[in-house]
Amino acid sequence: MGALIGKIKENEISELSLVEVQKEEVSGHQIIKNKSNRDILDLILFIITKENIYYQIDLVESSLSEYSFSKEDIQPISNNYLKKLLELKIGSGFHEIGCRKIFPAWGDFRKLSFSAKIQWPDRFHYQDSRGDVLVLPYLFNQNVELIDRFDNSEEFLQWIYENRKYEYVTIDEIRDLNFKLIEFLKNIVIN
């Protein structure tokens, strides 16, 4: 495992694929097969993030995921995968955050990270030693029209501010970044 992590750090391996079920037609030397190896991959991903390596997941099909590695603070999942995620519909809320999802933060959006403890959240599975997560400003409620699912309400912004991970972040920065994140999400889900 140490050799694999070293090759990722040195950019000798820039992507891996995970096949959740055994498929004979999938072949290659950078493929992890079998669902039991998910724990090994999670450990590798956690360790490489401690080494300031970032990664992005693309869900190619239901049983095939691709992981791309970078030294840049890249978006945690591809636009294609994010669109699939945003098309999910949740019927009821999750306590304080409503019908929202906790998602790994990246780039400037790390300033939207929060530190509150939330019971039973809907959290996107992503291994990262940095622990920067945000609440997507998007309501996964099937009873709400698509255009009304983006949340830039003062109540939501205030919750982020009161629970922010980084104390130096101002409410105005939160407003600006939340607006930018909403525009980014709209561009993905509407186009």
Rank of each mutant, 00 (worst) to 15 (best):
E10L: 11
H95W: 11
N191K: 14
S115L: 05
V26I: 15
Y166P: 00
L43E: 13
A3I: 13
E183G: 05
E24N: 09
L86Q: 05
K7H: 11
M1R: 07
E96P: 06
I188D: 00
N80Y: 15
F114M: 03
L43S: 14
T170W: 07
I77D: 05
L134W: 03
E51C: 12
S92Q: 11
V19N: 09
P121A: 05
L139E: 03
L157I: 15
I31Y: 10
L88W: 08
R149E: 00
L134V: 15
Q142E: 12
L45R: 07
K23H: 15
L134E: 05
I90A: 05
N191H: 12
S153K: 02
I188M: 04
D58L: 04
K9E: 14
C99H: 06
Y166T: 00
Y54S: 09
F103A: 03
Y126K: 08
D58T: 14
Q56H: 00
T170Y: 05
E167N: 12
G107R: 02
E15P: 02
F179D: 12
I118T: 02
Q119H: 14
Q22D: 13
I171N: 04
L139I: 09
Q127P: 04
E61K: 11
K33D: 00
I74D: 07
Y55W: 10
L177E: 10
G2I: 09
G131P: 03
S65I: 00
P137H: 01
L43Y: 12
S70H: 01
Q158W: 05
S27A: 11
I74F: 08
L157P: 03
F114E: 05
W159N: 03
I8H: 06
V60P: 04
Y126R: 04
S36E: 14
L112Q: 04
E173Y: 08
E15G: 01
K35E: 11
N152W: 01
G107F: 08
N178W: 06
L18N: 00
I5M: 08
Y126N: 06
N178K: 01
P76W: 07
G91T: 07
W120G: 03
F184R: 08
L85I: 14
S62E: 15
S78M: 06
S62L: 10
P137Q: 07
E154D: 11
L134H: 01
S92A: 12
E20P: 04
I102Y: 02
